[in-house]
Simulated assay, not measured.
Amino acid sequence: MYDERINEVVEWEVAAPEIATVEDGKVTAHKKGKTTNSVSYGGKTSKITVTVR
Rank of each mutant, 00 (worst) to 15 (best):
M1H: 05
M1N: 04
M1Q: 06
M1I: 06
Y2S: 03
Y2T: 08
Y2D: 11
Y2C: 00
Y2N: 10
D3C: 01
D3V: 07
D3G: 07
D3K: 12
D3I: 04
E4L: 10
E4M: 09
R5N: 09
R5H: 05
R5M: 08
I6A: 14
I6S: 12
I6C: 12
N7L: 10
N7Q: 13
N7E: 13
N7H: 07
E8Q: 14
E8D: 11
V9W: 01
V9F: 06
V9G: 01
V10T: 12
V10N: 03
V10A: 15
E11W: 00
W12A: 01
W12C: 07
W12G: 02
E13D: 14
E13M: 06
E13P: 01
V14R: 03
A15D: 15
A15N: 08
A15L: 15
A15V: 11
A15T: 12
A16E: 15
A16R: 12
A16G: 00
P17V: 07
E18C: 09
E18L: 05
E18W: 09
I19N: 02
I19R: 03
I19D: 03
I19K: 05
I19F: 08
A20E: 05
A20D: 06
A20G: 09
A20H: 07
T21Y: 05
T21M: 05
T21P: 00
T21A: 08
V22M: 11
V22N: 04
V22K: 07
V22E: 05
E23T: 14
E23R: 14
D24F: 03
D24S: 15
G25A: 08
G25V: 10
G25D: 07
K26L: 13
V27P: 02
V27H: 06
V27E: 04
T28R: 11
T28Q: 10
T28A: 12
T28V: 14
T28Y: 08
A29Y: 11
A29I: 01
H30K: 14
H30M: 09
H30R: 14
H30G: 09
K31W: 01
K31T: 14
K32L: 05
K32P: 02
G33S: 08
G33A: 06
G33M: 09
K34P: 00
K34H: 07
K34I: 03
K34Y: 02
T35P: 09
T35G: 06
T35C: 11
T35E: 02
T35W: 02
T36W: 03
T36H: 05
T36V: 15
T36D: 10
T36Y: 02
N37M: 13
N37H: 13
S38N: 08
S38L: 08
S38H: 10
V39Y: 06
V39E: 04
V39L: 14
S40A: 15
S40E: 13
S40H: 05
Y41K: 10
G43K: 10
G43V: 04
G43S: 04
G43Q: 07
K44R: 14
T45S: 12
T45F: 10
T45D: 05
S46C: 11
S46P: 00
S46H: 12
K47C: 00
K47G: 01
K47A: 10
K47E: 14
I48T: 15
I48M: 13
I48K: 12
T49K: 10
T49E: 15
T49D: 12
V50N: 01
V50K: 00
V50E: 00
V50M: 02
V50A: 02
T51C: 00
T51W: 00
T51Q: 09
T51S: 13
T51E: 15
V52M: 05
V52F: 00
V52D: 01
